[in-house]
Design a protein around this nucleic acid. Structure first.
Lengths: 206, 206
DNA sequence: GTCTATAGCCTGATAGAC
DNA sequence: GTCTATCAGGCTATAGAC
């Protein structure tokens, strides 16, 4: 993706990554909408004006965070599916991996899944990984139908939407009410397999 | 609840209500976490110092908003159940009414269901209506079990948690991705009955 | 209860020297 | 690329006159 050639570019890319890491730490402390350029500059060891050489504005910083977050979440999702037989099994593992990522990256997850910053809309480029993930889910549902695990309507648009509702519901409850729990112990996240089971039974071939 | 006796107290209560109404309008425009005392003062036609005669701090303002929001949501929930046969039917109607309220009061809903303001924790008094609502849901599930509509485990703690996950999932997706839709047309909210059906079938008596 | 005035912060962003 | 200096404003909250 970002293959810097020169030393300068490589160094610059490194600095930007450092900025993003500190930005996440700030959001963890003061909330996503509380992120400030000055505080990030302080932590990264710069005066605020210097930060603007790397990130042109506060909203641009959010866009970088959004893009990296979506990309990381997509990679977690795909890594989760790896090696699993396609269809329901792959979907369950991928969704669980994505959920674990969200629990381990709560500020980024909030930035991606709710819209906590008024005036910020992600750019098309930053949003792209999300579309890839939706396409992956759809394909997994089609695989499940092809294998006879689900009825065809499960791979329709409503089936996809229901999957998104279930996963968002689990995560948003867990993040809001018990953010420090581990995924397997969380009052909400530990019910993820049960909800997946509910979905599966609802659409099982009769 | 708040029965003011004297003219002065009545007037004061009226002013506080006006403050809360304007505060909601501000949150609608700049986000929940963007609420500022100064902006509210401007809109209500006061200088900022005067506002502090009615609300002692910004966090106290959030607490008032939280309490009123919880109360209004509880009232919508109960009004929705009114007249319906107890059990599943009452639960479905109550949850739908609560969902409609959330869609019509998005800023308050975000304040109640997510935790968008770092440093704000609702007081026990402000949180009380939420506990009442949980108790109501639990009772409705028990009624449904008693009527033979659901297996006993549906009224256990996991059943209650699953109900909360389903409703939160629908609402959080709708509010984040398509906030301007009507409840019956929303890409997510219109699937609420289907999700309720999923829940019902999963716990139906075999 | 309302105001003026103000303390003491914070912010995002830019100009221009080095 | 970094800095100092600064603009132009915002904010929460309080003191004290009226």
């Amino acid at each position: 993706m970002t293959h810097s050639r020169t030393r300068g570019e490589r160094r610059r890319h490194q600095t930007i990554q450092e900025i993003l890491d500190h930005a996440v730490a700030v959001m963890d402390e003061v909330g996503v909408a509380g992120l400030s350029m000055s505080e990030v500059a302080r932590r990264v060891g710069m005066r605020p004006p210097s930060l603007y050489k790397y990130v042109p504005s506060r909203l641009a910083l959010f866009d970088l965070l959004f893009r990296d977050g979506q990309q990381a979440n997509l990679e977690a999702f795909r890594a989760g599916a790896e090696g699993a037989p396609p269809g329901l099994n792959a979907l369950a593992k991928a969704l669980q991996a994505s959920g674990r990522w969200a629990l381990a990256n709560q500020s980024l997850a909030k930035l991606l899944f709710s819209r906590p910053v008024p005036g910020f809309e992600p750019s098309a480029e930053a949003f792209a990984p999300s579309l890839e993930m939706v396409a992956d889910v759809q394909q997994m549902l089609r695989d499940a139908v092809a294998r006879g695990e689900l009825r065809p309507e499960a791979a329709g648009p409503d089936g996809l939407t229901i999957v998104s509702i279930l996963t968002t519901g689990v995560l948003s409850q867990q993040l809001s009410n018990e953010p420090d729990a581990a995924f397997d112990d969380g009052r909400y996240t530990r019910l993820a397999p049960r909800l997946f089971d509910m979905f599966t039974k609802y659409y099982e071939v009769t």
